Amino acid sequence: MKDLLLIGLYALIAGGTIGALGVAALRLMRHRSILAHVAVLLAVTVVSVAAGVTAVAQAMFLSAHDLQVVLVTVAASAAVTLAVGVAFARRLAQAAVWADQARQRERQLEAGRRELVAWVSHDLRTPLAGLRAMAEALEDKIVDDPATVAEYHHRIRVETDRMTRLVDDLFELSRINAGALRPALSPVPLGDIVSDAIAATAPLAADRRVRVLAPETGWPTVRAAEAELARVVTNLLVNSVRYTPPDGTVRIDAGRDEKDVWLAVSDTCGGIPEADLPRLFDMAFRGERARTPAPAGDGGGLTGGGLGLAIVRGLVEAHGGRVHAHNVAEGCRFVVRLPAAPTS
């Protein structure tokens, strides 16, 4: 019993000394990564065991050969332990990075939802106040000349249509975020979709004196849901027309490579600040411009309260595609890539 107590004391002194040094090292590197902390912890554990075994072996007056055998065995075990521990520490550090990214993404989404609610509330409150004022004026017969009455009726209809589009966009975005959107895919001629989108955007483009250009032929066939694809193209066109100054140009073209069909909408808006590019497709993001509804006739509300590009991204990703934007010489370029329809 006395020998066992003495061996335990030797091991405790040797291991405790190394452990105290390890605690001091951990305190000094408390701001370092998880990987560094785990590596130090493993090293302290292994070295403590090695020191304790060495101290005990020497106290037992082992022969030089036996001592070497013991130390080689301890070193081999230490190497295996360190290798496994470092691999585990790397995975733990990567998991921590992923968790931190997920938390940051969740915070961004929550901030986006709060911003969305605030902006949509503003976009609804403003026209509702105008609608109420015009309705009261008509009801109280404050306005009774036919021309003004007709103008009030026209403005009421325009504002009602705008709010309807905004509500539709909110519903569409809620389906996308809930993962409830399941597009029925089929081969769709992209040229027909683009032609319809240009026709739908023509009044806004004419009002803003913006030219919309597109090739007459050479459009590929894409595998997509026709209604959702039409909304993607229309939202991109409306967005580019709205932000292109008068007498500017918006061009839409497309092509096909090995696996994908690409569609690009380019404009002459003058470019987008680099800091805004990563947020273009976030909910309710509209940069520094147009935080209030545009007046009737200016396309206000066609893409919702900053929801148009968010819907584009959601619809494109639901098709298994991707979308991005970058600056070009005179403006910016939005590029959508979707799976191509199989060729016969």
Score class of each variant (00 low, 15 high):
Val80Ala: 09
Thr148Ile: 02
His153Val: 13
Gly19Asp: 06
Pro189Ile: 02
Arg313Lys: 15
Glu139Met: 08
Leu109Ile: 00
Ala64Cys: 00
Gly15Thr: 03
Asp196Glu: 14
Asp207Ser: 11
Gly301Ile: 04
Ala325Arg: 00
Val233Asp: 07
Arg256Tyr: 06
Leu131Val: 01
Arg113Phe: 07
Ala93Val: 00
Trp119Gln: 10
Phe171Arg: 10
Gly321Thr: 10
Gly8Pro: 01
Leu280Thr: 07
Pro183Phe: 03
Val210Thr: 01
Ile142Trp: 05
Gln94Thr: 11
Gly306Val: 07
Leu4Cys: 00
Arg103Ile: 03
Asp66Trp: 11
Ile7Glu: 09
Pro246Leu: 04
Asn327Leu: 08
Ala264Phe: 02
Gly248Lys: 06
His153Cys: 13
Cys332Asp: 03
Ala275Ile: 09
Gly218Thr: 11
Ser33Val: 00
Met134Leu: 14
Ala294Asp: 14
Phe61Ala: 15
Asp192Gln: 12
Val238Asp: 12
Asp169Phe: 09
Leu302Trp: 08
Ala89Phe: 01
Leu190Asn: 03
Val188Tyr: 11
Gly306Lys: 01
Asp161Thr: 08
Ala93Gln: 13
Ala64Gln: 13
Glu288Tyr: 03
Leu280Arg: 14
Val265Ile: 15
Ser195Lys: 12
His319Ile: 04
Met134Thr: 09
Gly130Pro: 00
Arg291Met: 12
Pro215Asp: 09
Lys2Tyr: 05
Val250Cys: 07
Thr221Phe: 05
Val265Thr: 11
Val238Glu: 11
His65Pro: 00
Gly287Leu: 09
Tyr10Cys: 09
Val232Asp: 06
Ala55Trp: 06
Leu35Asn: 07
Arg103Glu: 14
Ala11Met: 12
Arg289Ser: 11
Arg162Asp: 09
Val74Thr: 08
Ser266Pro: 00
Ala197Cys: 11
Gln108Glu: 07
Trp219Ser: 05
Thr303Phe: 00
Pro220Arg: 12
Ser63Phe: 01
Ile272Val: 15
Phe171Trp: 01
Val149Lys: 05
Ala230Phe: 00
Gly321Ile: 02
Pro339His: 02
Pro295Gly: 14
Asp276Ala: 15
Glu288Pro: 00
His319Tyr: 06
Pro203Ala: 09
Trp98Tyr: 05
Trp98Phe: 10
Val212Ile: 15
Ile176Ser: 04
Val84Ala: 11
Pro246Lys: 06
Val46Tyr: 04
Met134Pro: 02
